[in-house]
Design a binder for these strands. Structure first.
Length: 484
RNA sequence: GCCCCCGUCGUCUAGCGGCCUAGGACGUCGCCCUCUCACGGCGGUAACGCCGGUUCAAAUCCGGUCGGGGGUACCA
């Protein structure tokens, strides 16, 4: 009988949330949901210097936007709280005391400088702690204490080797002689990540730890600690580990927080859909099938198998992310696209907030023209502003040359005679006057007209746009453009 | 230095011994559609790092090598 799956999100609220963090969360989420398991959300804010409320809030906002829900933890509570490590000091002190009373750890009085000096003197190639304080006598301890030194609590790595079956990489073995004893707490008593992360996983009964590749080499330490926690009755079981590949930026470097592409919330601002971002991120290390890369999260949950995750580092490709986002956009019903576009139109000042009834109606008519041709929600604003702008504020963003002005005049004259202002009638009148009458190529004919009416070279379909704009405004803009 | 991870088109990947003269997607190039853009359609480009071994048969298994990455903290 296997125990129910329990995974965790455990971000540190330092800085703007990174797409790699989101990818890790997504895989945890998909894994848990696939297995009908639970997700615990805990905030690892032990680093007082770097943790900020802004970052904390940004992470929660991001998770909600993406729809990565959780069952226990931050904001929802649960039986293993509190879920902010900054509020769990008593828990760590207690565990540390029990560890310290056992032989799994020892007090270490060395300073970093002393360890370095010894290594230099001995010519040793080992980089970590040298085990100097492993077997201190009571007298030696007393002597150090008499000097006013306070110890860090150091974990005593066992002899032999440590092997685990990594969920994404298979069996991995470390000889513990290559894994130096490590500190669990600072000399001032503050617990370190090396302690709090495994301890919380233990107390929160996490069964599967899916995390970044950067933590792979600390796994032997955590496994050894976990064995001790199990022995001491603090942990029930040792979780399974899986190490997810890096998300890289340009070149061969990990996508760093300094890269603009790294900031997950920036994608929302750019007009990405959560469906699009998630779908793209899922592709970084996983695929649903050999001939398919657009899918819903429900489909991902259904198909996700951690063993299928590719261990190779993946480069973040903005172009492909946008293409996937565009595909997801096309999957949405029109009124949903409208709904999602609206905040961006308000933000850009294209429509008011709240939207007037007239604008809402116009938008409903205009959206069919733009929904199919935008890849990101932000693009709707530049495509639609000509329709909503006050006439006095209408501006042409492109030049119309001399020849173009003649075309515009011909268009104006032809359109003035149109009886019913409809797309078909406009189409007919313009073609008769410009293509047949002036013998122009369509491209040459409609380009200047488009600029006159919409202000841009790129716009929704011209005739439909003019119908929506209305006869008076269309003719007025054409007239205005005739004189340059 | 030592330890660990990784190695298929430019990029993300499919492939888990024969279906591979290696498939899809993004990108890119050409063409078609076309009032712009976008969509859509068609076609092209382009990869198993290298060397050995196992096998009737290897992108797939093993070893080595080269290359890339990470770790080696009283950071997380």
């Amino acid at each position: 009988m296997t125990s129910p799956v329990r995974v965790r999100f455990c971000p540190s609220p330092t800085g703007s949330p990174h797409v790699g963090l989101v990818r890790t969360a997504l895989f945890n989420w998909a894994f848990a949901r696939h297995h009908g398991g639970q997700i615990v959300f805990r905030m690892e804010d032990t680093d007082r210097e770097r943790s900020t409320q802004e970052s904390y809030d940004a992470i929660l906002e991001l998770w909600r936007w993406l729809g990565l829900d959780w069952d226990e933890g931050i904001e929802v509570g649960g039986p293993h709280g509190p879920y902010r490590q900054s509020e769990r000091g008593a828990v760590y002190r207690d565990v540390l005391a029990r560890l310290r009373a056992s032989s799994y750890t020892y007090d270490c009085f060395c300073t970093t400088e002393e360890v370095d000096a010894r290594r230099k003197a001995s010519g040793s190639k080992m980089q970590g702690y040298d085990g100097f304080c492993r077997d201190l006598t009571d007298e030696q301890r007393a002597a150090f204490e008499a000097e006013g030194r306070s110890p860090v609590v150091r974990f005593r790595m066992p002899d032999g080797s440590i092997t685990w079956h990594d969920l994404v990489r298979g069996d991995i073995t470390f000889e513990t002689e290559n894994v130096p004893d490590y500190a669990l707490s600072r000399a001032n008593g503050d617990p370190l990540y090396t302690l709090v992360n495994p301890v919380d996983d233990a107390l929160m009964q996490i069964t599967h730890v899916l995390r970044g590749e950067d933590l792979l080499s600390s796994t032997p330490r955590q496994l050894a600690l976990f064995e001790a926690l199990v022995e001491l009755g603090i942990a029930e079981q040792v979780p399974a580990y899986g190490h997810l590949p890096y998300v890289m930026g340009q070149g061969n470097k990990k996508l760093s927080k300094r890269d603009p592409e790294a900031h997950a919330l920036a994608y929302r601002e750019q007009g990405f859909l959560p469906e699009g971002l998630l779908n793209y991120l899922a592709l970084l290390g996983w695929s649903i099938a050999g001939d398919r890369d657009v899918f819903s999260m429900a489909e991902m949950v259904e198909a996700f198998d951690i063993a299928d995750v590719n261990p190779n580092p993946a480069r973040f490709d903005l172009k492909k992310a946008e293409a996937i986002n565009a595909s997801q956009m096309r999957l949405l019903p029109l009124d949903e696209v409208t709904h999602r576009v609206l905040p961006f139109l308000k933000e850009a000042g294209v429509v008011g907030d709240p939207v007037s009834d007239a604008d809402a109606q116009l938008l409903e008519l205009a959206m069919p023209l733009v929904a199919e041709r935008i890849n990101k929600l932000t693009e709707a604003a530049t495509m639609l502003d000509f329709l909503f702008v006050d006439e006095a504020d209408f501006a042409r963003h492109e030049e119309i040359d001399e020849a173009g002005r003649d075309v515009v005049k011909a268009a104006h004259d032809a359109l003035s005679a149109v009886e019913t202002w409809s797309t078909a009638a406009i189409d007919e009148a313009l073609r008769a006057a410009l293509i047949d009458g002036l013998g122009l190529k369509p491209r040459v004919a409609f380009g200047p007209v488009r600029i006159a009416v919409t202000g841009r070279k790129v716009s929704p379909p011209l005739f439909e746009s003019m119908e929506l704009l209305g006869r008076d405004r269309s003719l007025a803009r054409l007239h205005d453009a005739m004189s340059g």
